[in-house]
Amino acid sequence: MIDLHIRSEQPGDAAAIAALLHAAFAGNPHSNHTEHLIVERLRASGHLAVSLAALLPEGRLIGHVAFSKVAIDGRDEGWYGLGPLAVLPQVQGQGVGTALVEAGLSVLRRKGARGCVVLGEPGYYGRFGFAQDAGLRYPGPPPEYFLALAFDSPAPQGVVAYDSAFAEPEALP
């Protein structure tokens, strides 16, 4: 694990976070390369519930994680979605992403969240307690990549919808 500091996003971080998202997802075949737009739209709408930055001791931003509310069957059940999570390629595999996810989940618990979902690699997110929940569904991707983590009670049942910021740019009004 490298020496880093995790803090909430600051007003002057937006450009560095956008650059980080570009760099982190540049070679990802599962990305449509709009992660920076998702975070910008969440921020602009006031729906970026938790936004954490990981910095090296000298202040260089090397990682970021975002959390936003999700609806379950159209209702606010106190659940959040994790994503995007980004770490600069040259420091991936050194615990930055793990530290960001753990810090973000801790913030959600302090906020009184009831749970969190993520669309991601089961082998990675399983270490935080995320697992498939047959009662929570997200149409589209293979179900084994849609994972849930209930904090204090069983997960509600239904179809999960992310914030409209996650829609493809051309699909937005």
Rank of each mutant, 00 (worst) to 15 (best):
L108W: 04
A66D: 08
H64E: 08
Y138M: 15
L88S: 12
L88T: 14
L85A: 11
E121S: 10
V50S: 00
H47W: 12
A86L: 01
Q132I: 08
A155M: 09
Y162V: 07
Q10I: 04
L61E: 10
L82C: 11
V70P: 04
Y162M: 06
G115M: 03
G46T: 01
R109Y: 01
E170N: 12
G120P: 02
V87P: 06
S68P: 02
F25Q: 07
I38C: 03
H5Q: 14
L55E: 15
G59M: 06
G135M: 07
A161E: 13
A49N: 10
G104D: 11
F67V: 02
L21F: 01
G95C: 11
L52N: 07
A99H: 13
L56S: 12
R110W: 12
A134G: 10
G126M: 05
E121L: 11
H30N: 13
A14K: 11
D133C: 15
Y125M: 03
Y145A: 03
C116L: 02
E35L: 09
N28E: 05
E121G: 02
L20W: 00
A66K: 10
V96M: 13
D73C: 12
A134C: 13
L21R: 01
A103C: 03
G104K: 04
G123I: 05
V101S: 06
R7G: 11
L21Y: 04
V159W: 00
I17T: 07
G46L: 05
L4P: 01
A44L: 12
L85D: 03
R43M: 08
H36D: 15
L48E: 06
A49S: 13
Q157K: 06
A113L: 09
V39C: 06
G83M: 09
H22W: 04
V91W: 06
A86P: 05
A49W: 07
I62A: 09
V65S: 02
P169R: 05
V91C: 14
A16E: 13
R60W: 12
R41K: 09
R114T: 02
S68E: 00
L52P: 00
